[in-house]
Amino acid sequence: MTHRQSPRHYTCKAGCLASQPLAADSAELDAPRAMQSEIIRQALAGDVDCIRSIFLHLGSPDAKQRQSMQRAMHALSDPGLWRHMLRCLAVHCWEDRQDTEYRASAEVSQRIDQSIAEVFVQDEAQREAQDKECVLREALAESDRFVRYAAAYLLGLRKDTAVIPNLAQMVEQAPKSWQVRAVRALGVIGDERCAMPLIRALALGKGALHSEARQALQKLGRLAEPAWQQALSSPEPRIRWQAARGLGDPRHVRSLEILAEGLLDSDPEVRWETSDALARLGDRAIPVTLKVLCRGPVSKPLRQAVYHVLSSVACRASRQQLAPLLELLCGPARGELVSEMAGRLLQAWEGQS
């Protein structure tokens, strides 16, 4: 489509006044909804002045101005509009025209993208919801991967569980900014099937991705428990390490026996994180730790991990009860003796409870 060019100062067909550089005129931004709907229609017809007006509203620092354009979009609810907005979010293009000239700063660009996401999530009529979902589902088959990413992200924000596999794939393969969006959408969906992709996101590094994934998993709560348990048996040490941390979170104590299995892990980081997580749980971790020690064989790495757990117990009476075992763990005693002592202590401990 050929876009009609405009002079430095202009009035678009819908009557909206604007000028270069990109500074929003108050009269333009306060246009009534009917005029804004006409602005959208002219923008869909290719009028660059009206396209610019849409972005001025969506990127405005004034929430009321952003919302006024969003309301006009809801009122018009044209499938063509949703296709344009999807591409703006995905590849920063209005058809074949880059919209970067309307994104004067990172903050403006972020507001535009957030405004687009919000207008896709909120519906004012059933027909509007149907049109959006149709456009987004069709876009899942687009050749452009970023359009597919944007469609999956927006459907996720709409709590469509069908895109969980798409979002999981994004966590593994997409650029960092889209990984963060995928994690955010998984958190919104709130289904137990979202837990494993979120755990994998935790293992991909620190920063925004890690923070978003941890918040989403905390929100899932007990729904994430099966995934945490499954992750502790992952062939990837970084996943097992995150599982040990997740299962050992003192705020959400779950499946301690599964967590304690990490003491036997072949990866030293997993063993250390497991022992550290158990140590934070205090007396609650003693029985499951003793059970692991009872089973044997008692290797040097296992001795070190168990010693860290049991020597960290804060209760004086518990420390006195564990003292003989701690002495054996530090000395040259054979593994069989260590296991026997752990068994006797476990019986005594269970008899007290």
Rank of each mutant, 00 (worst) to 15 (best):
W94L: 03
R145N: 05
Q173P: 06
W178E: 01
E138N: 09
C134E: 01
I199W: 03
S143R: 07
E192K: 13
D96S: 08
R97V: 12
R87N: 01
L140S: 01
P175T: 12
R158T: 05
A117P: 04
L89A: 03
V135P: 10
A104F: 00
A150F: 00
T161Y: 10
V91G: 01
L140T: 02
S177F: 12
E128I: 05
V163K: 02
K132Q: 02
E128C: 04
C93Y: 08
V183Y: 01
I199D: 12
E142Q: 06
L204Q: 11
L204W: 02
L157H: 15
V135M: 09
L186K: 13
Y153R: 08
G187V: 13
Q98P: 04
L202Q: 05
C93N: 05
F120D: 14
I116Y: 09
R184C: 06
V180Y: 03
H92Y: 03
L186S: 14
S115W: 12
C88W: 03
R127N: 02
A125E: 11
L154S: 03
E101D: 09
E128G: 09
C194H: 07
D191E: 14
V119F: 02
E192F: 02
Q169T: 11
I164N: 12
C194F: 07
L157M: 14
W178Q: 00
L157E: 08
E124M: 09
A203Q: 06
S109H: 07
V119M: 06
V163M: 11
V91E: 05
W178D: 01
S143C: 11
S105F: 05
V180H: 04
V135Y: 06
Y153Q: 03
A129T: 08
S115C: 14
L140K: 02
A162C: 13
S105L: 03
D191P: 06
F120A: 14
L154Y: 00
V183F: 01
A125N: 12
E142T: 08
L167G: 01
Q130K: 10
E142C: 10
R193L: 15
A129L: 08
A90T: 04
A90L: 07
V171D: 07
A106L: 13
A195P: 09
R158Q: 14
R158E: 11
L136I: 00
R145Q: 04
L155V: 05
E101S: 11
S177A: 14
E172K: 14
Q179C: 00
V108W: 05
F120T: 14
K176G: 04
D99A: 13
E95M: 02
C194W: 08
L202E: 00
R181Q: 14
S177C: 07
A182H: 08
V147R: 09
R200E: 09
I116P: 10
V188P: 03
E192I: 12
E138V: 01
R97M: 12
M170R: 00
D144G: 07
F146D: 11
R158Y: 02
E172Q: 14
Q126A: 15
A117Q: 14
L89S: 06
E101M: 10
Y102G: 09
A162I: 13
A174S: 04
R103Q: 15
L186A: 15
V119C: 08
A151P: 10
H92W: 06
